[in-house]
């Protein structure tokens, strides 16, 4: 019985590797926040380009979105880190992590945003135009504020995905939480317990993030909308 329970005793491992785990957590969390920030901005621009841009612009945006969404994230990281240096483009694993995940996030955010942009009814354009607003004025002042509110649930889902998918960074050796977990386990051979700790940490962070995002969503709510 004690033997069974000791399998789940993880406090000692947590304490003795606290520094490493926290460093990994810090990296993972910072990576996620930064990636979400730039990925969302870039994603919205892509969505605007695809929905409202000129033909060549729309085509480029669509191509980008389809290619990135259609290829595995791991492959994208590999290409950025291992395949480019022979051509002179060399980046550290950390840079590749930031760049690769942002590129990926932007493509998905673009699709979510496009969906909500297109769900804004054309009536909104009619009204705005009849007041004398230009096309881009309408897009930024009338359509986007509404589309973004519709997109927020999908965006928050993406946040949770990114948070967990950053664990792929271990493959290129970026020092995220998963990498640290692997490192610790490869030394103390307590694989089950170490990965249990790592999983629990991810879970806690996801819970906290979801809680914060829910609060933000509430604040942005408009009666009868969304």
């Amino acid at each position: 019985m004690v033997d069974f329970l000791s399998q789940y005793l993880i406090i000692d491992i947590f304490i003795s590797n606290f520094g490493r785990l926290m460093s990994g957590l810090r990296f993972t969390f910072t990576l996620t926040i930064v990636v979400m920030f730039f990925g969302t901005i870039f994603g919205v621009l892509l969505a605007l380009g695809r929905s409202f841009g000129s033909k060549p612009v729309a085509w480029l945006c669509t191509a980008y979105i389809e290619i990135i969404r259609g290829t595995p994230m791991l492959a994208q990281l590999f290409i950025l880190y291992f395949a480019l240096p022979p051509y002179g483009i060399r980046m550290t694993a950390v840079t590749v992590a930031y760049l690769g995940f942002t590129i990926n996030c932007a493509a998905y955010q673009a699709e979510y945003t496009r969906g909500s942009i297109e769900s804004v009814s054309s009536d909104q354009f009619k009204s705005a135009y009849s007041l004398g607003m230009s096309r881009w004025q309408t897009i930024f002042i009338v359509v986007l504020p509404q589309a973004i509110r519709w997109a927020i649930p999908a965006w928050t889902n993406e946040f949770i995905y990114i948070l967990k998918y950053t664990s792929l960074a271990y493959v290129i050796g970026a020092p995220d939480l998963m990498t640290q977990g692997k490192f610790i386990a490869s030394r103390n051979y307590q694989f089950f317990r170490v990965y249990l700790i790592v999983a629990i940490i991810y879970l806690i962070i996801v819970w906290i993030s979801t809680w914060i995002i829910d609060i933000v969503e509430e604040k942005l709510k408009i009666p009868g909308f969304g």
């Binding site: 291992f82 240096p85 022979p86 060399r90 550290t92 694993a93 493959v171 290129i172 050796g173």
Partner: peptide, 11 residues
């Protein structure tokens, strides 16, 4: 394999 590739890439 990846470690050696990293070496070849001068990382």
């Amino acid at each position: 394999v990846l470690a050696v590739q990293d070496l070849i890439n001068e990382n």
